[in-house]
Design a protein around this nucleic acid. Structure first.
Length: 404
DNA sequence: CTTAGGG
DNA sequence: CCCTAAG
């Protein structure tokens, strides 16, 4: 395959591209005049392949302005596309799994049509949990097969962290990044993916009930919001491809009422006993004191921090929504704002390091990560000043034009 | 809606 | 983590 001609997702690997057109047809039966098969298909066929992950935004530097876009090709050659999920189904999923998954997807599609309440999902196939955890070993092997682990990521991941790290990109040292395997899965795999959260280490471990709870969307227009990619790629929330919002964080105001409605309709209370759902249920007093606020606080795991840093080196500083959608898609908490806040804190921490590590923070951030934070920060500043300079030069040239 | 900044 | 104002 000629990878150089492909975007990050590859030609055949659009995450939301239906694998089986015949099956897909069934889904698109539409009585509300939403999407005809043809329309939807056209949509899929015509749209650019990867408007979400622009290669040239990898460095967050607006490289096209720096005149290195011509190098994009050699750039692409440098990529190790191993991090891409295999949508062709050659390794992790048997064809059988895939088919049954698809059929269930169809059923869910119907349910989705019937039920306005935002997407309640059951896993396609619980047995697929194993399948999805399985690539772990391969994944790790890949990492060690490529040139190692410059940021000690492997050390950060516990043994059971099966979403793992599935590849690296052969750029300069600083921009070498890893992309979480689980983040790149097909929409069809959505639920099995949520199961991957089981395997995540640290205090973020989610019990089954959480897992169930997070099938319930947050409601509101967050549907397209938290699933920005869906909106930008094609409006799949309209019918055929159902998109899930995993945002389940409690909110003040009318939204809370909505969540209650959903949960009451969808799940019995004893199913909602996990930490995450508890948050939703318990926090009924709308006016929270400052200490109560902390109840919602979820410590950032090291893995999350790494993901954040990777996300920033991927999209650049400020692309919080992009980072959320790509790297934190299945962290139901962690809104783009949270991510931004964490970055701000990291920045603070990275600046403090040279003085004395004041009061040795409870959860010290590894030095290499802080180094990377600093690197990215300085890079961001550079790009800012670059923008500034270019805009200034533009203005100057405008003035010159005006004169002449 | 998304982001930045302040609390 | 939350709130608000600005693009």
């Amino acid at each position: 395959m000629d990878w150089s001609r492909m975007g990050p997702f590859g030609m055949d690997q659009r995450p939301d591209f239906p694998e089986n057109l015949a099956d897909f047809k069934y889904q698109s039966v539409d009585e509300n005049g939403c999407h005809s098969v043809e329309d939807t298909m056209k949509h899929y066929l015509m749209e650019p392949k990867h408007d979400n992950v622009a290669v040239d935004s990898f460095l967050g530097l607006g490289m096209e302005n720096m005149g290195i876009s011509s190098k994009m090709e050699e750039f692409s050659h440098g990529f190790d596309f191993n991090f891409l999920p295999d949508y062709g189904g050659s390794d992790s999923c048997s064809t059988q799994d895939r088919e049954s998954g698809l059929k269930l997807e169809i059923l869910e599609g119907f349910l989705d049509e019937v039920d306005e309440v935002e997407d309640i999902y059951a896993p396609h196939n619980l047995s697929s949990i194993g399948d999805h955890c399985l690539p772990d070993t391969q994944v790790k092997k890949q990492v060690s097969d490529t040139d190692g682990d410059p940021y000690g990521l492997m050390n950060l991941s516990s043994e059971s962290y099966s979403s793992g790290i599935s590849g690296s990109i052969g750029l300069s040292e600083w921009s070498k990044e890893t992309v979480p395997h689980s983040e790149f899965k097909n929409v069809l795999d959505t639920n099995s993916k949520e199961t991957l959260c089981f395997c995540e280490p640290g205090d973020d471990k989610k019990p089954l009930s959480t897992f169930i709870g997070s099938w319930v969307g947050r409601g509101k227009s967050r549907k397209t919001n938290s699933f920005n990619t869906a909106r930008s790629r094609s409006d799949c929330s309209g019918g055929a491809m159902s998109c899930v919002s995993y945002d389940f964080r409690p909110r003040k105001g009318p939204l809370r009422k909505h969540i209650h409605t959903i949960t009451e309709n969808a799940l019995s209370d004893d199913q909602l006993t996990s930490s995450e759902s508890e948050d939703d249920i318990c926090v009924t007093n709308t006016s929270k004191s400052r200490s109560d606020r902390r109840k919602n606080q979820r410590m950032w795991t090291l893995d999350e921090v790494v993901k954040l840093v990777n996300g920033i080196s991927h999209f650049g500083v400020g692309k919080w929504t992009d980072i959320k959608n790509l790297f934190f898609r299945y962290e139901s908490h962690r809104t783009p704002i949270d991510i931004r806040d964490k970055w701000r804190n990291l920045l603070k921490a990275s600046k403090h390091v040279d003085g004395e590590e004041r009061k040795s923070p409870a959860r010290p951030i590894p030095k290499d990560i802080l180094d990377r934070v600093r690197e990215l920060a300085s890079l961001h500043l550079k790009s800012l000043s670059f923008v500034h300079d270019s805009s200034r030069s533009r203005n100057i040239s405008r003035k010159k034009k005006k004169r002449s």
